[in-house]
Measured scan of single mutants.
Amino acid sequence: TTVEVQGVEYRFDNPEEAEKFAKKMAKSLNLRVELHGNKWRVE
């Protein structure tokens, strides 16, 4: 599972970890998070 934060990609073996990371990043950067296939995008 991939998390893309403002163009930078982070890879996770565990989808739940990816989701937690994406939501945490979105909250700290005041952005929103969307799931596209198996990629979380924070923008």
Rank of each mutant, 00 (worst) to 15 (best):
T1L: 10
T1W: 15
T1S: 10
T1E: 05
T2A: 09
T2W: 14
T2N: 05
V3Q: 01
V3D: 01
E4L: 13
E4A: 09
V5L: 10
V5E: 01
V5N: 02
Q6H: 11
Q6P: 01
Q6R: 11
G7S: 04
G7L: 03
G7C: 15
G7K: 03
V8A: 06
V8G: 03
V8N: 06
E9N: 07
E9K: 07
E9D: 06
Y10V: 04
R11G: 05
R11K: 13
R11V: 13
R11M: 11
F12N: 00
N14R: 09
N14K: 09
P15D: 07
P15I: 06
E16F: 11
E16R: 10
E16S: 10
E17M: 08
E17F: 05
E17S: 08
E17V: 08
E17L: 09
A18H: 00
A18M: 01
E19M: 09
E19D: 03
E19T: 04
K20E: 12
K20Q: 12
K20A: 13
K20L: 13
K20C: 15
K20P: 02
F21A: 02
A22D: 00
A22E: 01
K23Y: 14
K23I: 12
K23E: 06
K23R: 14
K23G: 04
K24V: 10
M25C: 15
M25P: 00
M25R: 04
M25W: 07
A26T: 01
A26E: 03
A26G: 11
A26L: 02
A26F: 02
A26H: 01
K27F: 11
K27P: 01
S28I: 15
S28P: 03
S28V: 13
L29Q: 04
L29K: 05
L29I: 02
L29G: 04
L29Y: 04
L29P: 03
N30I: 03
N30W: 04
N30R: 08
N30T: 03
N30D: 07
L31D: 02
L31S: 07
L31H: 05
R32H: 12
R32K: 12
V33K: 02
V33W: 07
V33P: 08
V33L: 12
V33M: 12
V33H: 05
V33F: 13
V33S: 06
V33C: 15
E34V: 14
L35M: 09
L35T: 04
H36F: 11
H36M: 10
H36Q: 11
H36D: 12
G37N: 10
G37S: 05
G37M: 05
N38P: 06
N38Q: 07
N38A: 06
N38Y: 05
K39L: 09
K39E: 05
K39D: 05
K39S: 09
W40M: 04
W40E: 02
W40L: 06
W40G: 02
R41P: 02
R41T: 13
R41W: 12
V42T: 05
V42D: 04
E43Y: 15
E43V: 15
E43H: 12
